[in-house]
Design a protein around this nucleic acid. Structure first.
Lengths: 211, 211
DNA sequence: GCAAAAACAATCATGATTGTCTTTTATGCA
DNA sequence: TGCATAAAAGACAATCATGATTGTTTTTGC
């Protein structure tokens, strides 16, 4: 699916709440979800417009009526993925106790989701695809920034020892994401997941100042 | 580059040391190296036969004379990458002192190489490409097995506490590979590399029984 | 030298994907 | 009830990668 940069999605203004607009929005959502599913199923490079249309259960012509081109659809899918990540992210930050163990498990669950699979497909493709990168990188930066800010809010008492704090964050990120990706690629690791999670928890707790 | 499974590379028997055979082998090597460079530069899905031919500085026709089809070339490239990894791997196991720090650094250097980039491109593509997976998975399994065996040889005194040993190995693998991939995808991490490496060393040392 | 084989180059037909354009269907509002 | 408009489907040409085919040059072995 070729990316045409600097394309804006079809509906410019806030649509009136007419019945057609609702239907249109639903169809657009269906297409976006189908795109994400295709990225997970076939990978980014094999996510083609015919495949997405088939996955969404509609003709390619109908699909191109809602999105000017494949790139616009991909852009919308990226925005949706970003939203999903932020949402799952906020949920785990709000509802749970601010305990290291639960937070580690929450992020592990997050990187075990299809959303993360799709995101990594995009991220790796963006490495060699400048057009995709120009869309994806700002999203990644935004996510990273929010991640960091959220962590600071969750652990205010930790801000005196910024070095240890940063190390704990970087460790969590690299271990969990690394483990998720490793599981994607060679599959074989399931037995070690629990021990590693426990070790990571233990280590973060050790880095954290006593409450 | 479509993969045609179950194709064998052209030269069946051990070639006589004729001039043509040498030239042929050199050309084949050039093509394989060009393929690997293309995977790194353009990613797996954009590694097409015209691009490889251009990268190798020869016509596509010439290229298809040395490899029956694109898949055969990709298969040869995978074998070459496997060799490269094993080679770098043996070097760090043989030449260095069997010290945790040096070994961690050695593997970190290894996952920072273009060989690893190419391998990860292939590994992720194989997730959704059964033909590629059928070629790549055995190679991955073989590497993993050798990795494990090598580690056992390097640390015989550790074999009484197999759980800690396995944890140390899994940690090393996930942290280092995860960090390498993270650096590939969002780039931003360089400042944390050193602290994480040091922490990993410290942790492995803690898991290891006193010599 | 010379014929055979290999290396190399160029072209062709096929299939897939993309974006545009036209046509058909149905939906909402006067 | 009509009719204007959006939704949906299909047809279209252009582009690109692929493998096969054919032609040309160079090397090998007799």
């Amino acid at each position: 699916m070729a990316l045409s940069i600097a394309v804006s999605t079809k509906p410019s203004g806030a649509a009136a709440p007419t019945l057609q607009a609702q239907k249109s929005a639903a169809t657009r959502a269906r297409l976006i979800e189908a795109t994400i599913r295709c990225i997970v199923k076939y990978g980014y490079s094999r996510t083609t417009t015919p495949r997405v249309a088939e996955e969404a259960g509609m003709s390619r012509g109908a699909m191109l009526h809602h999105f000017d081109n494949g790139g616009a659809l991909m852009q919308a899918a990226i925005a949706e993925l970003h939203e999903k990540r932020l949402q799952a992210f906020r949920r785990s930050a709000e509802s749970t106790v601010h305990e290291v163990g639960t937070l580690v498990r929450a992020y592990w669950k997050q990187v075990s989701s299809k959303t993360f699979i799709a995101f990594h497909e995009l991220a790796l493709a963006a490495r060699t695809d400048p057009d995709l990168a120009s869309i994806l990188v700002p999203v990644q930066v935004d996510f990273r920034n929010r991640w960091y800010s959220q962590a600071i809010e969750l652990f205010p008492e930790w801000q005196n020892e910024r070095e240890r704090f940063d190390l704990a964050l970087a460790l969590s990120q690299n271990v969990l994401e690394g483990m998720a990706i490793n599981r994607l690629t060679h599959g074989i690791d399931d037995a070690m997941v629990e021990p590693i999670l426990r070790d990571l928890e233990r280590q973060i707790t050790a880095l954290k100042p006593a409450a």
